Amino acid sequence: MTVPVIELREVSRRYDDGPPALHKASLTVRPGEAVAILGPSGSGKSTLLNLIAGLDRPDTGNVTVDGVRVDQLGEAGSALYRRSKIGMVFQFFNLLDDLTVADNVALPARLAGTARAEADRRAAELLENLGIGRHARAFPGRLSGGERQRVAVARALMNRPPLLLADEPTGALDTAAGQDVSRLLTDLNAEGQTIVVVTHDLALARSCTNRTVRIADGRIIEDVRSGAVAPEAVR
């Protein structure tokens, strides 16, 4: 049996005096899985994502990602964890407009201490593999939404993370660009990349993931696998 990429055990998080944003959530994600986290606004999806990303800490329970107890990390440890263990893709890209596409992609490696020549080589390789190598010297503002999201995916993959987190990755895109990003995520998963997608979009979940986890009122209420699952992902 393979070691899980993500393991949450009885995780709860409450803000102020309101109801729990997440209540005793347990979730295991194994290598090679592509998982969609679905739920309405306020259901706890973003809280779950932030806990996995080390951007927040649970009040109770354990969060382990690729063997790292994320809930026990301090600020410096959390930053190092995010650089080495996860890649993040956001709805609005979060690219730096004053850097070229290539420099945006290379930035995580440079922050991790990789030599510039090696970081540039890796960035060029990713951009070519994702079909946007011709835009390497352009600035993000000159690209379409779909192209900018491909740049964001390339940046997220820069340090070869075991886990790719995507937060509403098609939310700011038109239908055609959204379908393009969905195919990209499908292709990455077919190559073995473990992916967790947080989305409201059921069509996106169905097209690029093989497992759906539904959250409502801070609780995981459904966890269903569909279609073919990579052998290493089977419990």
Rank of each mutant, 00 (worst) to 15 (best):
L22H: 12
L99I: 05
G218N: 14
D17W: 03
R155E: 06
G39C: 13
V65I: 10
F139V: 06
P4F: 07
K85G: 00
A36L: 09
F93C: 10
V68G: 00
I221M: 10
D217E: 15
R235W: 12
H135V: 00
R235I: 04
V3L: 09
T212C: 13
T64W: 08
F92G: 00
Y15V: 11
K45S: 11
D201T: 07
I6L: 14
G39K: 13
V68M: 00
D71N: 14
L185E: 05
L127N: 06
G42H: 14
A154D: 07
G171Y: 09
R69Y: 08
Y81D: 07
V198K: 04
L49Q: 08
A176S: 14
R206Q: 15
D223A: 03
L107G: 09
P162W: 05
E125G: 00
R142C: 00
I195L: 13
T64H: 08
A136W: 02
E118Q: 13
F139E: 05
N159A: 04
P140M: 05
I215Y: 06
L188V: 08
A53N: 10
V105R: 01
V65E: 01
G61V: 10
P231H: 06
C208H: 02
G87T: 01
R160I: 00
E232H: 04
V68A: 06
A154V: 04
G113L: 07
R13A: 14
R155P: 07
L127D: 11
V35G: 12
L130H: 06
T186N: 01
V234N: 11
E222F: 04
D59N: 13
N62M: 12
R116G: 02
A154I: 04
M88T: 12
L184T: 09
R148S: 10
Q72C: 08
V229S: 14
A156M: 02
V105C: 06
E7W: 11
G74T: 05
D103G: 07
T28Q: 13
T186A: 12
P40D: 15
I6K: 11
L95S: 09
E147F: 13
G67S: 05
D16Q: 15
G44Y: 13
T209V: 01
A136E: 05
A106Q: 01
L204G: 11
